[in-house]
Simulated scan of single mutants.
Amino acid sequence: MTGKITKIAGVMGWPISHSLSPRLHGYWIDKYGLDADYRAWPVKPEELGGTFSQLKENCAAEGGVFRGTNLTIPLKETAFDVVDILDPSAKRIGAVNTVVVGEDGRLTGRNTDGIGFIDSLAEHVNTDVLRGGTAVLLGAGGAARAIAVALTDLGMAKIIICNRSTSRAETLAGHVGTHAEAALWETRNNHLLDADILVNCTSLGMTGQPPLEISLDLLKKSAIVSDIVYVPLETDLLKAAKSRGNIAVDGLGMLLHQAKAGFEAWFGVTPEVDTALRRHVLDGLKGK
């Protein structure tokens, strides 16, 4: 930093202590020499609207400007009804992961999770191999919404959504389109038989959360296994996938790539995702 803080952004969630976003954005702030700060705010869903108003006042009192925030579990769908303007990406997905405060003070909700997921996937495989294939998604929350839409745009022919609440899976399937279908959580193992990619879009398997119970016995060896969880970096799901020869994609890449658009909107700089950034953020995983 070269002077006093003039722009303030951050990440909100409940809980938020696990988030690596402050370390990620802090790296970019230092790299590009910005007079900015990025913070973590623990926020419950019912507090979201009030927190936005409070932050505008608090940041102004500090002599800075509140520019916006990332949103993580469980706020991505709550924000859909809180922001003033919905970007087309958020409208299509039905969830918000990035909020930008405009010059007029209005809040615009965006969604960069989908492109972040695809950009991360592309670091490991040629995503063209998934066109016309079948995806099995575990979960039906905000991240699942973004990934389902992104895989649809990629050209996948079938999206199977398994969720503990079948009604939520049905709602998401209806949102995605006719090629998406809901499935009972209890049948998740059986649906792996035809899967070309399996994505855990839940918090199951995250440090401090219940384990994800799933058997990969029916999954073909050519299938890709991805987990949006990045604490721990290698979840039990990814360990099981690697042990049987499947390509395993951790959740850190999605975190890094989804962050680019928000950082640019808040701070006016297009950041780079590279090995130095990944190494820096990985160091923050120690002890988590």
Rank of each mutant, 00 (worst) to 15 (best):
D81Q: 12
D30A: 15
M12H: 01
L204G: 07
C201T: 15
I197M: 09
L24V: 08
L48A: 04
Q258D: 11
T127N: 06
V65H: 11
W41N: 02
E123L: 14
G133K: 13
M12Y: 10
K4T: 14
D37Q: 06
L24C: 06
F117H: 04
D227R: 02
D250L: 03
I161F: 08
T127D: 04
E170D: 05
H179E: 12
R145S: 13
T78W: 03
R145C: 14
V249E: 08
T98P: 14
T127S: 07
V125E: 01
S21M: 01
T108R: 04
F117I: 05
L255T: 08
S167F: 01
D217R: 07
E264R: 05
R39Y: 06
L151R: 08
T235W: 05
T72M: 03
G141H: 03
G133A: 06
T171E: 15
S21P: 03
K239I: 07
D81N: 13
L193G: 04
R168E: 08
E170W: 03
L151M: 06
V99Y: 01
R131G: 09
V43A: 01
S17C: 02
P211L: 07
S203T: 14
L218T: 12
N246D: 01
I160P: 04
I115S: 14
W28F: 07
A248W: 10
N200F: 03
N70E: 01
E57R: 09
I29K: 00
Y230L: 02
D194G: 02
S203A: 13
G64E: 06
P232Y: 05
V65N: 10
Q209M: 14
P22D: 03
V83G: 07
K7F: 07
A157N: 10
L137A: 09
T207V: 08
K4E: 12
I85R: 12
G133T: 11
